[in-house]
Design a protein around this nucleic acid. Sequence first.
DNA 1: GCAACATTCTTAAACGATTAAGTGTAATTG
DNA 2: CAATTACACTTAATCGTTTAAGAATGTTGC
Lengths: 339, 339
Amino acid sequence: MAGRVSLKDIASKCDVSVATVSKALNDADDIGEKTKEYIREAATKMGYFPNFAAKALKTNRTYNIGVLFVDEAQSGLTHDYFSRVLDSFKRTVEASGYDVTFISGGMMANRDMTYLEHARYRNFDGIMIACVDFLDPDVGELARSSIPLVTIDYVFNDRSAIISDNVQGISELLNYIYKRGHRKIAYIHGADSSVTQARLKSFYKTAMELGLEIPDEYILEIDYRDTVAALEATDKLLDLKDRPTCILYPDDFSAFGGVNAIRRRGMKIPDDISIAGYDGIEIAMRYSPQLTTIVQDTELLGRRAAEKLIDSIENPKTTFSEQVVVTGKLNEGESVGQL
Amino acid sequence: MAGRVSLKDIASKCDVSVATVSKALNDADDIGEKTKEYIREAATKMGYFPNFAAKALKTNRTYNIGVLFVDEAQSGLTHDYFSRVLDSFKRTVEASGYDVTFISGGMMANRDMTYLEHARYRNFDGIMIACVDFLDPDVGELARSSIPLVTIDYVFNDRSAIISDNVQGISELLNYIYKRGHRKIAYIHGADSSVTQARLKSFYKTAMELGLEIPDEYILEIDYRDTVAALEATDKLLDLKDRPTCILYPDDFSAFGGVNAIRRRGMKIPDDISIAGYDGIEIAMRYSPQLTTIVQDTELLGRRAAEKLIDSIENPKTTFSEQVVVTGKLNEGESVGQL
DNA sequence: GCAACATTCTTAAACGATTAAGTGTAATTG
DNA sequence: CAATTACACTTAATCGTTTAAGAATGTTGC
């Protein structure tokens, strides 16, 4: 009700010094039990809660975590996969008393700041980076700073990272498709990145293990989440004399682009051709034919990232950098037919 | 490189007082031009940027905006429509030097805070509320506070709000469907809320204007974004002796649930039955048949919300509360056939 | 009975900025 | 030329906390 109540107000009300009030509320051990009780009671009665800025100024701790989250494709928060990771991350850090603030580049209080400057200005206790162009020098500068940090799906030299197990995912997916009788498998993969490289490598390795021949024209590259490019790439594959019987897409979203191309020709999934996506976005699981895909454990990815980050904030001595791998789960779905 | 540089450091380096440095950097008019230049130069050379906490403590301005964004359906940030609004909001406020921090309820620094307490603790300059249960008493408490605030798609007494024009949207959609020759139109609407009420009212009004008969069994209620419920509701409609020729869904997402029910029966869209969604989420625009839907102008919604909020933060005297209505745009798509 | 210690509180400095009020010098004015 | 004004700076208080160091009181040990 009243304007903000400060320690001073409580102090005068209780006839003690400001220091006593501060210590009482922080449960210091040089304050008597009865005094503590008395002060605490008055504090709640007066509706006191600490002034964040003052506390931050003095303690150099903000309980605020900066999140760098700039979709390369400019689709921002709309990217389903990372949105979920972020959401899980947010819930976990909040449970430990941290807030989440977005790190922005560009203009900031009429001054052009780099990500690092912004992070230092806001004095974030830690930083999470996801879904950005990791080759951006500004991002690199941030990663080289001394601020506790965790990245998702990208490993910076000697910094903690949570990465989804793309090797296992592709391998499991490919094995499943093989088991369903497919031998002619095409892979439309995403644009170059560490994730793409891991997947491609796993694809070739698994194919070799299975004794599969993969002609060069079965491998195409498009941008992630580009339904139009996916449509065109699919058309190219369907135009081949020796058509694949199954097509892998970089992500579920672009798989939908493939579906369009396939439907346009009057072909049916999975009867005439099989497809598989990656990520397990909600709509893919709900739509029919339900997509065969690797469901990323976004909940776990976000939570692990949060846990790791908080750990390195609160125990800087004992915490070491590490890469945590989170495995996805095959959703068999209905889009890969039995041959 | 060095630890943080403070005004004091610059002051001693430049042989002036701290006050002079502060004023020089803030371009006060009682500092000589050459001195300003000299100090500014030293400041950049030393890598100075202000300490946010100190500034906030003194000026009582944080340049931080709290966003309350709790999906009722627990899907958090994954809600496509609001994610986009938030993204646009974020970009706009950042351009004016504000940051965005999530307001969380529940645990916060080992104390259970209400939204308002959290907002006051962080000293947000302003607050944006979207995508929450507006009947939650905690949300109401926040709305009744004196902090500048803007809501999206809900109007609190005497507070600014940005709302999408549901009346116009439904009307335009229904008129289009009518023009395509449909007379038997069913409406599966969302759960009760101000948005739902506006749409329903508009639906009935427009139907009356067009002289349409809407039997009661054509009107069903489900939760928003519930594909399973949408599937079941669709089945109910398709089981009627007197089937509708077109079905409206609460949102694009649930429309996909309807598509499943329809496809399951071997029926084709729009040949055997027509459907329409609402929102214009990305996948709906990319998938075939492209959904007939009202595309919400999420970019504008977010931007207007940001503009309004910043205005009321920076010009508290001259700014008045108002409700801004943002109209959507009909996407004709391919899911409503010509009869 | 007095040094030593524990307990509980207070004093005061500090964090890094902003800003009203004060000071000293130079320029203007009637 | 004395008085006023303008200019360019400094002093010092302040925002709301934390925390090291000091002080007052009571307790213990020998």
